[in-house]
Simulated assay, not measured.
Amino acid sequence: MTDFDVGARLKAIRKARKISQRELATQSGVTNGLISLIEGNKSSPSISSLKKILSVFSMSLSDFFDASPTDNRKFAFRFDEMVEINPERVFEGGTEEGLKAVSLRRVGSSFERTLLMLYEIYEPGADTGPELYAHEGEEGGFVIEGEILLQVGESTETLKAGDAYQFESTLPHRFRNIGDKRCVLVSACTPPTF
């Protein structure tokens, strides 16, 4: 995903929605100059800026970074069909090593659905970053194997296989594998704003 053209993707989405750079800037609360710089690949947007811009299109980060066509009628997904989301593009402030140990696979297209489902793998030492992140919606999940330290606001819990979680995604949160074995989660978020 290192060769993903953020500028071309944003421009294509904007033009498909028949919206000008100026209109996009006004609706998203960023400057017209920033939109122009991003589309020209002269500036990389922060996650925060990109989320603001994509909110105008009701598009999640995962859908933005997945330009593959989808089929609304599809209801079963094989593991190798799930789209890998690059965690470095989602979590701010994480270490390169900690983020490389995270694998997020999206089930289907969250752009066409009201529910985002993820198959998540956290290798030992994996961490979504020292900074907690937040987004619109509600999320929950089950720990399938291993254990994960989940921080929501000021509270932390260590969850093990068979345990589950559910919280408002607007609360700052963070996931970290503090164990010596991989941790596998199956999670869902609605609406698909992650």
Rank of each mutant, 00 (worst) to 15 (best):
186 V>R: 04
97 E>F: 11
17 R>Y: 12
143 V>R: 08
36 S>V: 06
41 N>G: 12
69 P>G: 08
76 A>I: 15
26 T>G: 05
176 R>F: 12
72 N>M: 11
11 K>F: 10
94 G>P: 02
192 P>V: 11
190 T>L: 02
9 R>L: 03
78 R>Y: 14
156 T>F: 03
9 R>V: 11
27 Q>P: 00
22 R>N: 14
6 V>K: 01
34 L>C: 13
80 D>E: 13
113 R>C: 00
5 D>A: 08
180 D>I: 13
147 E>K: 07
153 G>A: 10
148 I>S: 02
80 D>N: 14
160 K>H: 13
70 T>R: 09
45 P>G: 04
71 D>G: 02
2 T>S: 12
79 F>E: 11
142 F>N: 09
61 L>K: 04
22 R>V: 14
84 E>C: 10
115 L>Q: 02
159 L>V: 09
60 S>W: 03
125 G>A: 10
52 K>P: 01
29 G>F: 07
47 I>D: 01
149 L>C: 06
179 G>P: 01
37 L>A: 08
85 I>K: 01
178 I>E: 12
117 M>R: 10
100 K>S: 15
180 D>N: 14
53 I>P: 08
84 E>P: 08
190 T>M: 01
2 T>M: 07
51 K>P: 02
60 S>R: 06
146 G>L: 11
172 P>T: 05
162 G>Q: 07
87 P>C: 01
25 A>W: 09
178 I>K: 15
154 E>S: 08
122 Y>V: 05
26 T>W: 01
32 N>G: 12
123 E>T: 06
19 I>R: 05
47 I>C: 02
87 P>K: 00
94 G>R: 02
87 P>W: 12
110 S>Q: 04
